[in-house]
Every structure is written in structure tokens, then in C-alpha cells.
């Protein structure tokens, strides 16, 4: 009886470990609370556990000074920081500030670009997560025509 219980427990632990493994490896569930957050600091806290970022001149954020069309704003982020794990783009005055989040496995270069929508003129923040913390750089982008519909 005792032996049976031991075996059962061990089996349970093994199964739980197997189930947990792919999740940990991929870490790829869509972080809905972060994307649903209506304030930039909440979004960062949901995504990274803290909204405290260190301003860094090692990050270069490519964004236009004036975006004529808020529906298509080209953004690029490049950094010389090492061991980058994640890069996120946060538009502070968008209804949902977290626009996009890149998960960089080791070997992938911290050099990304995409196109996002902006509802109105707002600071755009690039947040870079490395193994030594969160770093950020911010830039004001003026929007002539908003791109969030309505």
C-alpha cells in the first residue's frame, strides 16, 4: 500500500515536470493581462514584474518625429546591450499602451523593426529586458491623423 502511494506520487511529479517543461521552454503564452492594460506602467508590471526601467543610451529607437498617418508608424529598436531577452514597444497614450513584444532567444540579435498604430501624439518607449534588468529609451512621436479608428 505504502509502495503504491510512493510510486503514484513519483509518477505524478514526473508528469507535472513533463507538462511544465514545454511551457518553460517556449514561454510563449500570449500575455493577455499585459496587452489589456490601459496604463503603460501596468502593462510593464504585468509583462516584466516591474515598471522600473533604467534609461539607457545603448538603445537606439528609430521612430519618425512626425507620423503623418498614425495607422502606419515605422518603429525600429536596436541595442548594444548584451544578453537581451525581450524587446517591447509601448505607446503611452494609446488606449492599450503595449503595442508589441519580441521574445529573443539566445542567438537572436537585438535588432527589430515593425509598424504600429498610434491614436495620437505620444511618447513611444522601447523597453529592453536583459539578464541585468530593464532598460528603456523614449521618444515623442507627433501624429497628424490617428490610426486607432473611431
Amino acid at each position: 500500500m505504502q509502495l503504491g502511494r510512493r510510486l503514484f506520487l513519483k509518477g505524478g511529479v514526473a508528469v507535472a515536470a513533463l507538462l511544465a517543461l514545454p511551457r518553460a521552454l517556449l514561454a510563449s503564452a500570449w500575455p493577455e493581462p499585459a496587452f489589456a492594460s490601459k496604463a503603460a506602467s501596468n502593462a510593464l508590471t504585468e509583462l516584466y514584474g516591474t515598471d522600473q526601467t533604467t534609461p539607457s543610451s545603448a538603445i537606439s529607437l528609430g521612430a519618425p518625429e512626425i507620423a503623418e498617418n498614425g495607422a502606419v508608424v515605422p518603429i525600429s529598436v536596436e541595442t548594444s546591450l548584451e544578453n537581451v531577452q525581450s524587446v517591447s514597444i509601448v505607446v503611452e497614450k494609446n488606449p492599450r499602451p503595449l503595442a508589441v513584444s519580441f521574445e529573443n532567444p539566445p542567438g537572436t540579435l537585438p535588432d527589430v523593426a515593425c509598424r504600429i498604430k498610434m491614436g495620437q501624439t505620444s511618447p513611444v518607449m522601447a523597453v529592453v529586458k536583459t539578464d541585468s534588468g530593464l532598460f528603456s529609451v523614449s521618444k515623442e512621436v507627433k501624429v497628424t491623423i490617428g490610426g486607432c479608428g473611431g
Partner: peptide, 19 residues
């Protein structure tokens, strides 16, 4: 080599680049 999580704030017909 890369996972991108997107919100609705990514433009229509999305473009991404990375290395």
C-alpha cells in the same frame, strides 16, 4: 529564433524584421 506577441496596435498587414 523569435516569438512576437502582438496587440491590436500593430498596423494592418504587419511587417516585421529581425536578425
Amino acid at each position: 529564433v523569435m516569438t512576437v506577441h502582438c496587440s491590436t496596435a500593430v498596423s494592418r498587414d504587419p511587417y516585421f524584421s529581425f536578425s
